[in-house]
Design a binder for these strands. Sequence first.
DNA 1: TGTTATTTTTGAAACGTTTCGATTTTATGA
DNA 2: TCATAAAATCGAAACGTTTCAAAAATAACA
Lengths: 334, 334
Amino acid sequence: MQKNMSTIKDVAKAAKLAVSTVSLALNNDPRVKESTRRRVLEIAQGLQYRPNGIARDLKARRTDTVCILLHDLGGPFYSELIRGVQDVATSNKYNTIASGTGGGHIGSAAVRLLSERRVDGAIILAPDVDDETIIHAAGKDLPIVVLDRNLLAENVYSVLVDNERGGYEVTKHLLNLGYRNIVFVCGPSDSLDSELRYRGYETAMNEFHVQKSKRFDYCGHFTEEGGYSIGKLLSAMGILPDAVFSANDEMAIGIMKSFIEIGIRVPEDVAVVGFDNIPISEYVQPSLTTVRQPMYDMGAVAAQFLFQALNGNSELQPVLLPTELIVRNSSQVK
Amino acid sequence: MQKNMSTIKDVAKAAKLAVSTVSLALNNDPRVKESTRRRVLEIAQGLQYRPNGIARDLKARRTDTVCILLHDLGGPFYSELIRGVQDVATSNKYNTIASGTGGGHIGSAAVRLLSERRVDGAIILAPDVDDETIIHAAGKDLPIVVLDRNLLAENVYSVLVDNERGGYEVTKHLLNLGYRNIVFVCGPSDSLDSELRYRGYETAMNEFHVQKSKRFDYCGHFTEEGGYSIGKLLSAMGILPDAVFSANDEMAIGIMKSFIEIGIRVPEDVAVVGFDNIPISEYVQPSLTTVRQPMYDMGAVAAQFLFQALNGNSELQPVLLPTELIVRNSSQVK
DNA sequence: TGTTATTTTTGAAACGTTTCGATTTTATGA
DNA sequence: TCATAAAATCGAAACGTTTCAAAAATAACA
């Protein structure tokens, strides 16, 4: 049975000093005599004393920690985002913790970290955290940066990726290559991303005076399986288009897989393009033409916003980050 | 300028009740009259009161949170691990936060979360957190599960993957296919994983009475670039083996890339196998034969250990999870 | 109505720190 | 040696909760 964790009181008692002196000593306050400090340090060491961070946070009314909330921690392309946040947070001497909002009671992670003020700031890329929660939690002393979300509120700042332009450019790429019958495969119907990418597609198609596919004809759930089914469906119904623009890479990969299985060649018979530039998009066969989102930048910019806000600057305009078209082999015969 | 967050005191004052009554009311204690509770709830709502989690944690001396410490949050194959942990933690009504140990001052994340007791338990897969820190932080009330680390200490529990057997099996697979001149490419010299995988390789080679490569001749840093250089080196020196067993997939992919670049065919000229079964290993060309680590199980088992320990069971023997050989095209002509 | 049992509310202490103003100790200068 | 300045230490309050024992209010019963 281990004895209880020793506290600053125990150290004080052992050193025959006041608690306050010990505290000062441990925090290297110049007011304590050098010899006392050394003695305190020694005794603290001997007692295996470790300050209790929670008590410290309570007193300080700050945690020096920011969090990043993701629906699915460890999703395929959050990695760079997290890195971006962490790099900036670290250089501002803040700690970063991440939490997934997916499992468990809905909103529990958000409530716990934000509403109950266990962090000093937050970056949120999680559609399942509702605006309400965010608006309520945000405050002068707890700025929140939302990613990929249309939300305008006090102490809430916004970083967006130009999904619409990305959709426009990749569609135009297809059109320039001569493809005309281009089908758009959308994601979940409540996905803003999917919607915006469609709008870009729409614009490009209009620009070329080409008839566009009805938006909601083909709808996966941003999953590879979803794409696979849609691919099967398209070919089974004998309505193969010239090209498919899938609202994300996972679905695009599923689509390609289904095509290839039944002997439809990509891109010779049908071109396929995706969106997101997830790591495997480079490795699938054929490699996937897609649109890169600047995930690292997104994280870094979001974190910078956070610290600007924490330093009192509340005049931060929403920023729109550019995407980048990445042409690979799924759209263009070598 | 936003006014200060309201506390339970403000609610009490507004309701003309004692703080303690309000606390009881908010926590649905049956001792408070129903009508009072409703009144309190209403007033709390009106004041936008949100309990301060830090104060609560301090008083309760527990956080209902466990953390998972990874060197590189968002690394390619942690995703499943995190999911495993989170699933189990959630079903035990605990929250999970994740933190990367890579950026920033070394050990800072670990110290902050573990030593300063901001969590009730931890799962650690991060070679850069040293044993010392773990041993010191661990306690009856803060069990720690270490993954892939040889560490035996009080309140520290261990979940391992049978790297040695994995190495043995994949080597045997090569030997059974007739390969004899098999080179082992190791990871960083301080990597236990790499070492164990080598031992499995050694055993298999001995079993077949084949001469094995010297262990430290070829050493990448578990990176694709490292593998690429080694591949170049091997071919440049004209000492191509029959097969290469790379201590992880990233390096294996780099090696294949370099081979293919200069016209060496995989697997016809040289077979390549890796370890870890990272997502893209399935998609590279040729697809990579590798060894799967049961990441989800690892996370789930680790979390289960944690909660067993939190519930007073300290008799948990280290567990060794089996690996699984995944044969793909990089080792075997179709 | 008075007594007792029950329900409801309360004040104070505690969790482990930091910080402030006050007090004690030591050093300084005449 | 004494007064004063400077250095070192101290005690108490505070951070925002929960909890415990006790007090107050209400209900039940004779």
